[in-house]
Amino acid sequence: MQGVVKVNSALNMRSGPGSNYGVIGTLRNNDKVEIIKEVDGAYEIRFNGKVGYASKSYITIVN
């Protein structure tokens, strides 16, 4: 499943599905991501070869 990031500035990509996990990357508006699955209000995603988590509130599914 594919998604597009929709933010005003940037969205943190984290090592786990919550803000208490470390930041492993930054997503920008209109970045395209692969959605692997939904976990606790976040999506597990793949972006630029990395797998991490981002809030589903800022990712629009575009299948």
Rank of each mutant, 00 (worst) to 15 (best):
K37F: 05
N12D: 14
R14A: 04
V5W: 01
M1C: 15
A54S: 04
S55D: 15
T26S: 08
N29D: 09
T60V: 15
G41R: 05
Q2I: 15
Y21W: 10
L27T: 01
I24M: 05
S9K: 14
V7Q: 03
S9E: 12
G41T: 07
G3F: 03
K6W: 05
A10L: 14
I61L: 11
S55Q: 11
G49Q: 05
V7H: 10
V4T: 07
N12E: 15
S57V: 13
E34H: 10
V4W: 06
G22R: 14
N8F: 10
L11H: 05
S57I: 14
F47P: 00
S57Y: 14
V5H: 01
G18N: 12
V62G: 07
G16M: 04
V23S: 07
G3R: 02
N30K: 08
N12A: 15
I24N: 04
R14W: 15
Q2S: 11
A10S: 14
F47C: 04
G3D: 01
V4R: 08
R14Q: 06
G22I: 14
G22W: 10
I35N: 00
V23K: 07
N29T: 07
N29Y: 09
L11I: 15
V33H: 01
V7E: 03
V33D: 00
V39E: 06
Q2N: 10
R46A: 08
N8M: 11
I59V: 06
K50G: 05
N63Y: 11
S9I: 12
V4P: 01
V23F: 05
P17T: 05
G3T: 02
V39G: 03
T60E: 14
M13H: 02
K6M: 09
V5A: 03
Y58V: 06
K6H: 12
K56S: 09
V5I: 07
N8C: 15
N12M: 13
N8T: 13
S15Y: 06
V23Y: 05
I36C: 07
I35P: 00
N12R: 13
Y43P: 00
N12V: 15
R28I: 09
R28M: 12
K32W: 12
S57R: 14
V7D: 03
V62L: 13
V39K: 06
N20E: 13
K32I: 15
N30F: 08
V39L: 11
L11G: 04
E34M: 11
T26N: 06
Y43H: 00
G41S: 09
V39W: 10
I59Y: 01
L27Y: 00
V7G: 10
N12Y: 14
N63E: 13
Y53P: 00
V7P: 02
K56P: 05
L27H: 00
V33S: 01
S19E: 15
V33G: 00
A54F: 03
R46H: 08
R14M: 11
M1K: 11
S19K: 14
V7S: 13
M1P: 07
V39H: 09
K37H: 08
M13S: 02
G25E: 12
A42H: 15
I61M: 08
M1E: 06
G18I: 02
V4I: 14
K6E: 06
G18F: 04
N20Y: 10
V5N: 02
S55C: 14
T60C: 15
G25N: 06
V5G: 04
R46C: 13
V7R: 06
V4A: 04
G41L: 07
V4M: 09
V62S: 09
V7L: 04
K56M: 10
N30E: 08
S9V: 13
Y21Q: 07
A42T: 14
K56L: 05
R46Y: 12
D40P: 08
M1V: 12
V39F: 09
R14E: 03
I61G: 03
I36L: 13
D40K: 10
G41V: 04
R28Y: 14
G18C: 08
G49C: 07
V23D: 03
I35T: 01
E44H: 10
G3K: 01
T26L: 13
S15W: 06
K6A: 08
G49I: 02
G16P: 02
G22D: 15
L27D: 00
G18H: 07
I35E: 00
G3I: 03
D31Q: 07
E34P: 01
M1I: 13
G22V: 14
N20D: 12
L27Q: 00
R14P: 02
E38C: 10
I36Q: 04
I36G: 02
I24R: 02
G49T: 04
L27M: 06
V4N: 03
N20Q: 13
Y58W: 08
N29R: 08
K6N: 11
G41P: 02
A10P: 13
G18R: 05
K37R: 15
G52V: 03
Q2D: 07
K32L: 14
N63A: 13
G52K: 01
K37I: 05
T60M: 14
V62N: 07
G16I: 03
V39P: 01
D40C: 14
I59C: 02
G16W: 03
Y43R: 00
M13A: 04
G25T: 10
D40E: 12
Y43G: 00
Y53C: 03
R28S: 10
Y21S: 14
K32E: 10
S15M: 08
E34K: 06
R46F: 11
G41W: 12
I36K: 02
V62D: 09
V51D: 04
V62Q: 09
